[in-house]
Write a protein that binds this DNA or RNA. Structure first.
Lengths: 369, 369
DNA sequence: TTGTACGCGTTATCAT
DNA sequence: ATGATAACGCGTACAA
């Protein structure tokens, strides 16, 4: 039924393998035969069968991103991945896990069956055992954004603890003393690490850490909304809130609006993740993660591993810039364009290299380009 | 190297084909042999090779969504697709085109090479010829959200013209007379159709249509921002703005904020697409598209077509509900929770069946469940 | 530079 | 209910 390489070869008067070489620019083919083959192919409207090719070569030329891809952060990551992958001749599958371990497991199973060349995964801690299984099967994968305890693997992530530390420090230096922390699930490493940076900053400033001001839940807008309500009804009401990601920040802003509180006049708000495409969050001071670059770096790492499966795993930690806007009283807006009044905290040069070699067996140092 | 069906069969002491039948629950296999096979498979950690299976059966069990998937609207659509597809044993590939015809073409080529069973595509008009090519190759696909002139194919979309009409009517009945329209690209049918509904509403109300108050650009936040600035600097300044999608609405809100204008006190704003997950847009009166349902219906249509390739194409138009919130002066918020003050316009029963049979050769009538 | 023969892992077809 | 055989469409290995 369908046109095959054979048909093309026959029409061009050559053997199938010659046709294959001509179409793939592999091996030696004379200029004349190549012409004949290409002409025949286009005349027959030949469409190569990637399935057959994959079976024979045991390569699918396909990578996958496994994450909760609804978030703009992940959209940016995906873009970075596609960029590098496409350049290298790979396609990219986007798989939406919603951070649900069950969906995660189902997808991984699917991807392995389909012999996807490599997987970029934002894993929960619950999937440690599944990922161990992948290692055993020699399925290539790279962890992105999140680490998994007890799993040694290529990893790309942001310096979440450091950024949370500096974000908290910024609030403290602006005069806030009762900072509430609204974070994500305990089974996601970034949620823990951001809380840790916050704690350390308080301690280093000689302040007490009130554990009842640290709330963990989901990385969702609705949890941000709920948690903000909880924190704002504490006896010792916070004068500032730290949102551990962008969705949480949106929920928090809505809650504060509901309560008739203004930002930053009544309560300061800072948050993690870049949110430049959300108008309501444009005025927030944020830890702006290099999402697209994370995607690029992860993909490069993955492609390298496809070539060298036995190489020691690399841990790459990208710096995170703190972007200062008017949400924490440093330059309160008055109805004018708040966007004008922004700044940026330098990344402390000393802090990073220390973390860069944190992973066992690591030697990674990528930098940004 | 890898464990194959052969190995499993050998270990279970049966032929490969019996092992295949046991693992796939296809054909007749005795209870005992099935047990033996399953045990052998799990002991060997057998992972079926979907590539080989696809080659032999010429089915990949894979569907793809081709769209600008960054938008929350498409995220909801994707969810609906996954829901139905997974239940039917299909996986779903998400492909991000950014409405760029070149990317669209590249992806389609990839998908066809990989022998994807069916494609759900939000097409631009530029891709008419490519899609014609797909038809010629008997590649199954379904158009979603957007129609393509001169292309007869299964289609699922919202009643955009009708909804735009009613949205405009709502503004008019609330007393607004100078309504600016900010829409998307000319090569996307929804952008045209929403503008058309707006025009018809004005005409039916006996008002003049000022073409300089209708701006087409991209479906992006930045175009919304830019266009709002343009419209608000017209001599005859609009008292209301119609955003043809949610991204545009965000940009418009930001622009109005920049200009120091309040919504709805100074300018009313209505928009298309559900935006319930965007805090800044929670108070907008919107045409709330049944995004997830669109995904579900499109997938059902596609699965049906896989079974009956020669069936006449169906055109399904889903009703769109108008959700009234405080953005157009009907019940201006005063700092309290605007969300309380909402309502909903009934879908006019008569309008729909007429459109349902609009497509040539169509007979579709799906309804909602 | 070109061609031959075979195999990748699975399932369709037909036979038993 | 089970099995033998062949074939899906391509690329590797080797030969010419």
């Amino acid at each position: 039924m369908a046109v095959t390489l054979r048909d093309v070869a026959a029409k061009a008067g050559v053997s199938p393998i010659t046709a294959s070489r001509a179409l793939n620019n592999s091996g030696y083919v004379s200029r004349e035969l190549r012409e004949r083959v290409l002409t025949a192919a286009s005349e027959l409207s030949y469409v190569p069968n990637a399935v057959a090719s994959s079976l024979r070569s045991s390569k699918t030329q396909l990578l996958a991103l496994l994450a909760g891809v609804i978030n703009p952060f992940w959209a940016a990551v995906a873009r970075g991945i596609e960029e590098v992958a496409n350049d290298a001749g790979y396609g990219v599958l986007l798989c939406n896990t919603d951070d649900d371990p069950a969906r995660e497991a189902r997808y991984i199973d699917q991807l392995v069956r389909r012999r996807i060349d490599g997987i970029i995964v934002a894993a929960t801690k619950d999937s440690a055992s599944i990922l161990q299984g992948l290692k055993r099967q020699h399925q290539a994968f790279v962890l992105i954004d999140r680490v998994v305890e007890g799993l040694e693997a290529d990893t790309v992530r942001g310096d979440g603890k450091g950024a949370a530390y500096r974000l908290t420090q910024h609030l403290l230096s602006t005069g806030y003393r009762h900072i509430g922390m609204i974070s994500g699930p305990h089974n996601v490493s970034t949620a823990e690490e951001r809380a840790a940076g916050y704690r350390t900053a308080l301690i280093d400033a000689g302040l007490d850490v009130h554990e009842d001001m640290i709330l963990h839940g989901q990385y969702t807008e609705s949890w941000g909304y709920e948690a903000a309500h909880k924190l704002m009804s504490l006896e010792l009401r916070p004068d500032a809130l730290f949102a551990a990601n962008n969705s949480l920040a949106l929920g928090i802003l809505e809650a504060l609006h509901t309560l008739g509180l203004r930002v930053p006049e009544d309560v300061a708000v800072v948050c993690f993740d870049d949110t430049t495409n959300l108008v309501s969050a444009r005025f927030l001071t944020t830890a702006s993660q290099p999402a697209q670059e994370m995607g690029r770096v992860a993909t490069r790492l993955l492609l390298e591993r496809l070539v060298a499966p036995e190489r020691a795993s690399q841990h790459i930690i990208l710096p995170i810039e703190i972007v200062i806007r008017s949400s924490c009283g440093c330059s309160a807006g008055d109805g004018e364009n708040n966007l004008e009044r922004t700044g940026s905290l330098p990344v402390p040069a000393g802090a990073l290299p220390v973390e860069l070699t944190a992973g066992s067996g690591s030697e990674g140092s990528y930098g940004q380009r």
